[in-house]
Nucleic acid binder design. Sequence first.
DNA 1: CTGAAAGCGCTTACAG
DNA 2: CTGAAAGCGCTTACAG
Lengths: 335, 335
Amino acid sequence: MNKRVTMKDIAEKLGVSKVTVSKALKDSPDISSSLKEKIIKTAQEMGYIYNAKGRMLRENLTYSIGVISSEKYYGKDDYFYIDLYKHLSNSLEKLGFTTTFNIISQSDENDLSVPNALLEQKVDGVVILGQMSLDYIQKILSYNYPTVFLDFYCDKFNVDCVITDNFYATYEITNMLIEQGHTQIGFVGNIYATSSIQDRFLGFYKALLENKIDLNKDWIIKDRDDNNNFIDIILPKNLPTAFVCNCDKTAYLTIEKLKSRGYKVPDDVSVVGFDDSLHAVLSQPKITTVRVNLEEMGRRTAKMMVEKIKQGEKHYGKMLIKGKIIIRESVKALK
Amino acid sequence: MNKRVTMKDIAEKLGVSKVTVSKALKDSPDISSSLKEKIIKTAQEMGYIYNAKGRMLRENLTYSIGVISSEKYYGKDDYFYIDLYKHLSNSLEKLGFTTTFNIISQSDENDLSVPNALLEQKVDGVVILGQMSLDYIQKILSYNYPTVFLDFYCDKFNVDCVITDNFYATYEITNMLIEQGHTQIGFVGNIYATSSIQDRFLGFYKALLENKIDLNKDWIIKDRDDNNNFIDIILPKNLPTAFVCNCDKTAYLTIEKLKSRGYKVPDDVSVVGFDDSLHAVLSQPKITTVRVNLEEMGRRTAKMMVEKIKQGEKHYGKMLIKGKIIIRESVKALK
DNA sequence: CTGAAAGCGCTTACAG
DNA sequence: CTGAAAGCGCTTACAG
């Protein structure tokens, strides 16, 4: 492992200069095709593997992106962020980049402990995947890498972000319920807990407004406390005919709660979720939900990041990616 | 971003040499503590960030490990490998390493497409996380990086591995059932599908042998085909009093199947699983299972990897990590 | 305790 | 079409 073949070795073997080898291996038009062929063949025979460490130093660029994410997004029932990571890193691969991935523990987040990759300039840019504490984000930003927030935004910092169009998606799914005859619709989610939930709520609210349906405050139900810990869902005395839930887990818990009170879903109450997570499929009935376009989000983030690095920190602002409604069994039409 | 402060800048500012700066920043005893202090202070003031690219080239070491894993382990109900990744990369961080993470798509695995990190020597070693196709593994090994297999082994290649002690864990959990009075015990899992399932079966079998309980072939039930695709579980006419399932998902499906046939779990039949995955908790009743010690597996893999790199490819062989039985509700004692 | 020299593997700008 | 020179940011071995 320790003694790898270098361009110099190939050059010496063929009696050419290493500049020529370098150019041939990157298929430069400078080199005659016959020589190119010979060099490529010899490189293969000698077991040459390109060593990016030289280029890294020369260009002061690692062609590597650091992805940073909080461990709280990788619990047993969170499929979402690992899938998003997969799409992001695959897109980066195609652009010639590698990806380092740090799942930050709660204690490291509290201690503002920064991954080695950023401490030692082993990445050219940073993607923060999912909301983290403001202090932690600030700490990361203090290293001055080109940065993109993925799946969240934060107006406190003027950082580009790629997010799913939460507002529009709940607007659409609420409209779907209204078209199916529902006029008494509740929302389940703590609208102060995260900006995603807030936006989803506002999309829900816009659909009501457009259809001149009153917002009943008793039908806005908390699913978690302000620190994002799930709490027991308390059903109102008078039930609406449908609930829009801020996420599938909450939809699942809402359905369980309704069932435990003797209600049937969707016969008595319709329920919709968000995320298309495992809960949507394991629930009985299976939950009609919104599938976020993770592939598109990953691709756009990768492209944005690479452009920022190569073209000197362009600004993009907020990029919204549309989701898609997935129809399952948890909604009943009233007309 | 582009013009970062370097050691040279600090040296010039203070009128010392960059060797002195380098030594001071790594707290070498060569430098007087007063000068050291001055250099560290100036570095901070100037916003110096250590640039590992220089060291990488010098030492031909990136202090980075590539983790490669198949996308099939990151489905909606797989929590396992991302957790293992987290522990592994956290352990590597503590040893001063960064981790690149590639989730290989099925098509890339078929095409033997290798991550950029390996193509360009951007890592010092490789961890393959979870079984992949032999061809793909062979391709990866052809790059001659120090390699560790994590959570699987393959006698075809003489590569070090860190695996959970599947054999011993099902041996233990089967013994637990026997101690609780069960003598009619089945196994659910295709024992030809993976080496893990095979080892788990053999641990089960050993417990039977030790207790002079006959192995009833009708009670060895397939949960998947030989390509690892889950199939409908077919219950035998005469049921045993307990099933040892090769994983929680299978335990979950077995319980669902039993319930649909009118049996009660654990009153009529006890069921145990393996992995302590989401299925174990979402199932009703919750499943008694084996929790694998992912933290220990990550830590041992990290240590092994770093030692191989620094001490020149030591060999370790097969390292077995013990799991732990988690008692829940799906087992009833018969005495 | 401090520093000048050499070099890691590559690429770019330039000369021929 | 080919190559000599310079340099990216660091560290090690050595001289003083």
